[in-house]
C-alpha cells in the first residue's frame, strides 16, 4: 500500500473509493455529528484492500443521550431506514442494553451498518485509541489495527477472520506494534478469550 503516512493516530492513503466505502462515509458523516465513533471488524480489512465484500459495516459509537439519539435518528432516516424497527424509543432501549441496530439505504437491506454503543471496556478502547484515516478530502476513524488483529485471531476466529488478520498483518508489515498486539491478546485472555 502506498501509505503516505502512518503515525500513532493517523493513516493517509490514496485509494479509489468503492461503493461500500461511499455507503460507509454517507452514514458516518451523519453519525459523527452526534458522537465519537470507530469502525471495527471486517470493514477495516476491506478499507485497506482485502479482496472481499461484507453485507454489514460494524461501528461503535459513544453512548448517546436519548434526546441526542432522537435527533440523530431523525436526520439519519432522511437517507437510511432502520432494519430492526422504526420506533425510536425501542431502538434506544436496544442500544442501551448492548444490542446492535442496523441501518441500510432506503428500500434496501444490504449493505447495512451495524451500530452499537461502546459499553464494554474494549469497545471503549476502540474509541479512545481510534485512528484517523484520510483518503483525499474524506476522513474516517477506525479502531486500532493491533486490536482488530488480536480480536479476529483470539475472539472471532472464523476462517474469514483469520484471513482478515493475515491481510492486515501483511499490509501493515513494518508499521504494526507487536507489543500492542500482545497487550490486547493478554486483555482478551483476561476476558476469557484464549
Amino acid at each position: 500500500m502506498n501509505i503516505v503516512e502512518v503515525k500513532d493516530d493517523k493513516i493517509v492513503m490514496d485509494k479509489e473509493l468503492n461503493n461500500l466505502d461511499l455507503f460507509t462515509l454517507d452514514f458516518i458523516r451523519i453519525l459523527e455529528k452526534y458522537g465519537t465513533y470507530a469502525l471495527v471488524s471486517g470493514y477495516v480489512a476491506i478499507l485497506f484492500g482485502r479482496s472481499r465484500i461484507s453485507e454489514d459495516v460494524d461501528v461503535f459509537v459513544s453512548p448517546l443521550t436519548k434526546p441526542a439519539f432522537a435527533l440523530f435518528y431523525k436526520e439519519l432516516t432522511s437517507k437510511f431506514d432502520c432494519i430492526n424497527v422504526d420506533d425510536v424509543d425501542e431502538l434506544f432501549d436496544m442500544l442501551s442494553t448492548r444490542h446492535s441496530i442496523r441501518f441500510a439505504r432506503k428500500g434496501q437491506i444490504i449493505p447495512n451498518v451495524e451500530m452499537r454503543f461502546a459499553l464494554k471496556p474494549l469497545d471503549k478502547e476502540s474509541l479512545n485509541k481510534r485512528i484517523r484515516v484520510e483518503i483525499g478530502k474524506e476522513a474516517l476513524y477506525i479502531s486500532p489495527i493491533e486490536l482488530q488483529i488480536a480480536y479476529k485471531e483470539r475472539v472471532l476466529k472464523s476462517p474469514k477472520d483469520f484471513e482478515d488478520a493475515l491481510h492486515l498483518r501483511e499490509v501493515f508489515k513494518g508499521h504494526l506494534d507487536s507489543e500492542k498486539i500482545k497487550y490486547y491478546e493478554r486483555v482478551l485472555k483476561l476476558h476469557g478469550y484464549q
Binding site: M13, D14, G49
Partner: peptide, 17 residues
C-alpha cells in the same frame, strides 16, 4: 496491496465490490 500504489490495487478492489 502493500507494494503497489493505492490507486492500482483499489481500482481492482472497486471492480469486485
Amino acid at each position: 496491496v502493500r507494494t503497489h500504489p493505492d490507486k492500482e490495487w483499489s481500482r481492482q478492489q472497486k471492480e469486485l465490490v
